[in-house]
Simulated scan of single mutants.
Amino acid sequence: MKNLQLEQNEYNPYYQPYVDRTSHVDIITGLKENLRTVINFYESVPKEKHNFAYAHGKWTIKEVLLHCIDTERVFSYRALRISRSDQTEMAGFDQDKYVEASQANRKSFEYLLDEYRTVRLSTIALFKSFGPEDLVKTGRASGSNISLRAIGYIITGHENHHINVLKECYL
């Protein structure tokens, strides 16, 4: 499952910054390495920062983590549907409403890390089930084409993006 150069028609240009933040290794290796990186990063966050937001209206660190969990679930669901040749267009989701409804700040940091780990291991298992012929399958989500392999890289790049934001603005 090597990262063959993604074609521009495999994802919406909105996701380019996430694709650019991948390690350009095969998807499974990237997801596994990203799992270690993300867990190590969040475990290093001081406890007093868990509910911290750097400005009014910005998400807390817990909310950012749960946002990454929710986004990975949505993208994994999209990957499952595409892999099963479901050509029904999939709607987008309002990330702000998801975060608002998540009650992330009421959950323990340990619980959120365990939830993240569980979701990532599920994503890895899903992507392991795909053959090379599956990875080039495309579907439509949020009004654009998206391929399975693009989804794998977007998941990793999205989390790398948020870690960079947390390092720059929160810590």
Rank of each mutant, 00 (worst) to 15 (best):
D96Y: 12
V38K: 11
E63V: 10
I27Y: 02
R106A: 06
S129R: 06
H162Y: 06
T71G: 10
S83Y: 01
V74L: 11
V64D: 04
G143Q: 05
Q5D: 07
N9K: 04
Y98I: 01
H24Y: 00
G152Y: 14
T71P: 11
G152K: 09
S122P: 01
R81H: 11
L121Y: 13
H162M: 13
G139D: 02
K49M: 06
D70S: 08
Y170I: 03
R36V: 08
T22R: 02
L171S: 00
K107N: 05
Y98D: 01
G143S: 06
G92I: 02
P13W: 14
G143D: 06
I82W: 00
V99H: 03
G139Y: 03
L166T: 00
T138M: 12
S129F: 04
E63N: 03
E33W: 12
I146G: 00
G30M: 06
Q16H: 09
L6P: 06
H158G: 15
Y54D: 15
K107I: 04
R78P: 12
N51L: 00
F127E: 00
D96E: 11
K167L: 02
V74D: 14
Y15I: 11
K97H: 05
R117L: 06
T88V: 07
Y15F: 15
H24M: 07
H161D: 15
M90S: 13
I146P: 03
V38E: 08
M1W: 07
S142Y: 04
P46T: 05
M90C: 13
R81P: 05
K128V: 08
R120G: 10
D94N: 10
Y170S: 02
Y153Q: 10
D26N: 12
T123V: 09
I155D: 14
G157Y: 02
K137I: 03
R78Y: 13
I39E: 02
T88P: 14
P17W: 09
R117G: 08
V25G: 07
R21G: 09
R120M: 02
D70R: 02
N145F: 06
L112F: 13
I154R: 01
I154C: 08
A104P: 05
K128N: 03
Y15M: 11
L126S: 14
E7T: 01
I61M: 07
R84Y: 00
E159L: 09
G139A: 04
Y116M: 05
Y18A: 09
H56Y: 06
Y15E: 08
D114K: 05
T88D: 12
M1H: 11
R149H: 00
A125M: 04
V136S: 13
I82L: 01
C169D: 04
S108G: 12
Q87G: 10
K32R: 12
H50K: 00
K167T: 04
V99P: 01
D96A: 14
L148Y: 01
P132R: 14
K58S: 05
K137N: 03
A91H: 15
W59H: 09
V64K: 00
T156V: 08
V165T: 08
K97V: 01
S76Q: 00
V64T: 07
T138A: 09
G139L: 03
L113A: 07
S85E: 05
I27C: 13
G157C: 04
V99S: 01
N160R: 15
P17V: 04
I69D: 06
Q95T: 02
N12D: 15
I163V: 15
R36S: 04
N12W: 11
I154S: 08
R81V: 05
